[in-house]
């Protein structure tokens, strides 16, 4: 029934999967570290994609949720000897609760107000982390133990990479299912036209809160993983630049499309590293590349299908090719 094309495509996904598994085995420590950073950026970008991509809410303070997850794991594991697995669970819950709390008053407003509130919220969390005693002040928390199952410790970079990989796979599956569900359709409806959605009986505030809370949860999860990978965390990691970079990953790759967002996250991490040999010029070159991308591909490098259909895709869509994307 299906064309060879689809088989070809799943073959390529499997190949990509194998490459991701093989990365720590065939490369050195440095590239494993870059790949792990890319993994947790994928997790962050996927989480933010629920908020920005699916529900169309502009969030400029996403690193706040990331910080909550990080600090929950950091504080609980170092001060109270709590196991990492409990702390990552609690980190996700705290982030979700915080997301809902900040969402209840602000999500009633239109998107631009939300952007301003979230921007402020992100700064508040960073300043609290910077000035409180329990967060270790400006130099943060150190000596965060690696996660373990029984006597098996995820000590090396390689093991942590695989741990993150598992979380990313789970996140992709969950978010892909969500995006194609009734909830996902409601989000997209709200994104396209909130008034029309409300008129059709979609509870706008409820679905927006759901998107915001779920997005925050993935931010918290990524934060906990970040804390154990780094073993030491500090407020610098949770500034506005971090929020902007995560948003950039989503926008660069293609808002609303899982594979696009993943591509964006990988590029945001990989490009500055690949340009390390240009030393001081790399940030500048990175900026130029981004501007060029936005000029020539305003919908991202790999935009979601709907936009492509309307905008510039001359290729007629055939049978199986439709079903793969989110």
């Amino acid at each position: 029934m299906n064309t060879p094309f689809l088989k070809n495509k799943s073959f390529l996904y499997i190949l990509l999967f194998i490459v991701m598994i093989a990365i720590p085995l065939i490369t050195n420590r440095y590239w494993t570290d870059v790949a792990s950073t890319a993994m947790f950026y994928i997790l962050l970008a996927l989480g933010l994609n629920i908020i920005v991509g699916y529900a169309g809410l502009l969030d400029l303070g996403y690193s706040a949720f990331f910080a909550v997850g990080s600090y929950t794991t950091g504080i609980l594991t170092t001060q109270f000897g709590v196991s990492f697995w409990i702390s990552i669970f609690l980190g996700a819950i705290f982030a979700t609760v915080l997301g809902v709390l900040i969402g209840i008053p602000t999500l009633r407003l239109r998107s631009d107000y939300l952007a301003i509130v979230t921007l402020g919220f992100g700064e508040i969390i960073r300043l609290i982390a910077n000035n409180s005693k329990f967060t270790g002040g400006a130099s943060g928390i150190y000596g965060i133990p690696k996660p373990k199952i029984g006597s098996f410790v995820f000590q090396s970079n390689v093991l942590l990479y695989y741990l993150m990989f598992i979380f990313v796979l789970l996140a992709i599956f969950v978010i892909w299912r969500l995006g194609n569900s009734r909830v996902g359709r409601a989000w997209k409806y709200i994104r396209e036209d909130e008034d029309a959605a409300e008129a059709m009986g979609v509870n706008g505030l409820y679905y927006k809160l759901l998107a915001y809370g779920l997005g925050a949860m993935f931010g918290g999860l990524a934060g906990s993983l970040f804390a154990v990978k780094m073993s030491a965390i500090a407020p610098e990691s949770f500034g506005f630049m971090q929020s902007a970079m995560i948003l950039l990953a989503v926008v660069l790759g293609g808002i609303g499309r899982i594979s696009g967002v993943i591509l964006g996250a990988v590029l945001v991490i990989l490009l500055p590293e690949a340009m390390r040999s240009f030393s001081d010029w790399r940030i500048f070159l990175f900026g130029v590349l981004l501007v060029l991308t936005m000029i020539f591909r305003p919908n991202g490098l790999w935009p979601s299908k709907k936009e492509t259909e309307e905008m510039d895709d001359p290729e007629p869509l055939k049978g199986g090719s439709k079903s793969v994307v989110s």
Partner: peptide, 28 residues
């Protein structure tokens, strides 16, 4: 930046350095 710092540190380890010098910000 703590995140950039671990990547930089891993890069130096991968280049088989014999010793490392530097370090300005405590958080990094």
């Amino acid at each position: 930046d703590p995140q950039a710092s671990t990547t930089a540190a891993n890069k130096l380890v991968s280049e088989n350095v014999s010793a490392v010098i530097g370090g300005y910000c405590s958080s990094a």
